[in-house]
Amino acid sequence: MLYGLMKYVILGPWLKLIFWPQVEGRENVPGTGPAIIASNHLSFSDSIFMPLMVKRKVTFVAKAEYFTGKGLKGWLVKKFFVGTGTIPVDRSGGRAAQAALDTQLAVLRAGNLAGIYPEGTRSPDGRLYRGKTGVARLALDSGARVVPVVMLNADEIQPPGKLLPKIKRVKIRFGQPLDFSRYAGMSGDRFVERAITDEIMYELMELSGREYVDIYAQKIKNQQLKAAAGKLTAESPTDSLAA
């Protein structure tokens, strides 16, 4: 009920009025039955724009911390995620990734749409990075087709670190559904899962026209954090000078 209110009454009409979305290939999303919506990830606003442009509910999972924030901001974030049908998952333990996949598998087995970002995190620079094989495992375990979708300019509208988006036309492109039934019964085979994941990432690269980098995005982010920490240390006064 809350999802429908957010989509059709609150967010949907305002999104169309302010950002006048240009959506290509929306007909590639099946009208019934399970499917995996696999998207590139450029901005926080991806989770707003894309699901609101699909006629059916697209369920994503998000870390539980988004649902437990304090104060007005925490309350607003929680209401947004609840209203858009996002499911909280505890990602603090060692089985965090599996817990997220199990949750999405239940969504698919109920005949619904499950959304996933194969890169696992937002792109640090707009390029497309190596996909994690969870999306392949999900496809194999559920038998669902994968619909690739790309956000073409979300990083221009809301760059990382920016709270308020720029007023600019949103551009989204859906590709043809990918069928991996030829690999039925091969879940757990890491070579098969890598091949499926790479095929999905290739489709995202073709649809987006973005440069592909065969490295995990999180590795780049970790390197950037380490470099930033090193820079701060180098610029900080020494203990003797600060005394």
Rank of each mutant, 00 (worst) to 15 (best):
L204E: 02
G71I: 02
W20Q: 13
N28Y: 15
I172K: 04
S187Y: 12
F49C: 04
M151E: 07
V58I: 12
A144E: 07
Q218A: 11
V9P: 06
A114V: 08
R130C: 03
L101C: 03
G188Q: 08
G120V: 03
K57H: 13
A242C: 12
S43V: 01
V213K: 08
K231T: 11
V147D: 03
L178S: 01
A38I: 00
L225Q: 15
E27F: 08
M151F: 14
F81G: 00
G94A: 15
G126A: 05
G94H: 14
S45L: 15
E65H: 06
D155L: 08
D125A: 03
V89M: 02
L5A: 14
L140F: 12
D189L: 11
A227H: 13
P51H: 02
M186N: 07
F80E: 11
L52N: 03
P237A: 09
V89W: 00
Q98V: 11
Q176I: 14
S142F: 11
L204M: 07
L11M: 12
N222C: 03
A136P: 00
S181V: 05
S181L: 09
Q104W: 07
A184V: 08
I37K: 00
G115W: 02
S92E: 14
V61M: 10
K166P: 03
L105Y: 00
R194K: 14
K57P: 02
E211K: 12
T233K: 15
T32F: 12
K168P: 00
G209F: 11
A234K: 12
D239I: 15
G126I: 03
S45N: 09
A64M: 09
R173G: 01
M151Y: 14
R127Y: 14
A99H: 06
T133G: 00
G83S: 08
R173A: 10
P177H: 08
D189V: 09
S181M: 11
